[in-house]
């Protein structure tokens, strides 16, 4: 049972001044599942992501990832532990080509230092070759090989989302955290995304998904947690979550009244 758990959040809390963005949120993500995190706007989903990936420092609580405690406030350490993420408002390296973006994702798993770069010794060149090949594979995997040498900022919106996923996958994550990947996508693009995410999960990467598109979440996720005003109000399989009165109230209650 123990080794089945990949990520545990223990009473994670984050405040911005007087605003409690996260209030003792605890949840457990198992290996190999697609876990959805939903909630109305401002419920704290992205804040949870930022705490998990070390961009924010949570005031209390902590994360246990793959059996070890995550250091707070150290994004590169979270990435090294095996958490890769995408951003709600896409953050690519716009003036680098698509393939270069993915190559940056390989940074952490490669080792060439300055001496190697300057002398271009055999080990460095072999590693460069491996980085390039892996980046090409990943671009192919997400289906944008033909855009490899275009600048990231010139890609279409859907392709940028895919590129961000490819870059995240380049870090060899155990957990891929996607922050609203379907935002702004049309039906066809969303469907293609669903297929991609399912494939990623099948290939052994656990997925944590923040999403507004309830249909996508319900179709894709094995389990879903609902956040409202920084608190987890529900966590279960989609069918149960959909019928939970607190969830219905969180989504509809405020706006109807």
């Amino acid at each position: 049972m123990g080794e089945q758990i990949l990520l545990e959040a223990h009473a994670v809390a984050k405040h911005f001044g007087g605003v409690k963005a996260l209030h003792d949120v605890s949840l457990t993500i198992r290996r190999g599942e697609i876990y959805g995190l939903i909630g109305p706007n401002g419920a704290g989903k992205t804040t949870f992501f930022n705490c998990l990936t070390g961009l924010y420092k949570n005031e209390s609580g902590h994360f246990t990832f793959a059996g070890a405690r995550l250091a707070a406030d150290a994004p590169h350490k979270a990435a090294e532990a095996g958490i890769a993420r995408t951003f709600q408002n896409i953050r690519l390296f716009g003036n680098m080509t698509a393939i270069e973006n993915v190559m940056v994702g390989r940074h952490m798993r490669t080792h060439a230092n300055v001496i190697g770069a300057i002398t271009r010794n055999r080990a460095t060149m072999a590693e460069e070759g491996a980085i390039t090949r892996r980046a090409e594979e990943l671009l192919h995997y997400v289906g944008i090989s033909e855009r490899a040498h275009d600048y990231a900022k010139n890609l279409s919106y859907g392709d940028q989302r895919r590129l961000e996923i490819a870059r995240a996958l380049a870090t060899e994550p155990k957990l891929l955290a996607l922050d609203e990947p379907a935002a702004g996508m049309n039906g066809t693009e969303t469907e293609a995304l669903r297929v991609l995410v399912e494939g990623i999960c099948r290939d052994g990467v656990t997925v944590l998904l923040i999403e507004h598109d309830v249909k996508l979440v319900m179709g894709l996720c094995g389990r879903v947690a609902v956040l409202d005003y920084g608190e987890k109000i529900c966590e279960d399989v989609p069918a149960v979550v959909q019928k939970d009165p607190r969830v219905i109230e969180a989504y509809l209650g405020g706006s109807v009244a």
Binding site: T53, G54, L55, P75, H76, A79, E80, A84, R85, F87, R91, L92, F93, G94, N95, M96, V104, G105, H107, M108, R109, R167, A170, T171
Partner: peptide, 10 residues
Amino acid sequence: EDEVAAKACG
């Protein structure tokens, strides 16, 4: 280009 994204890339 983007320091936050660079950090997230490890």
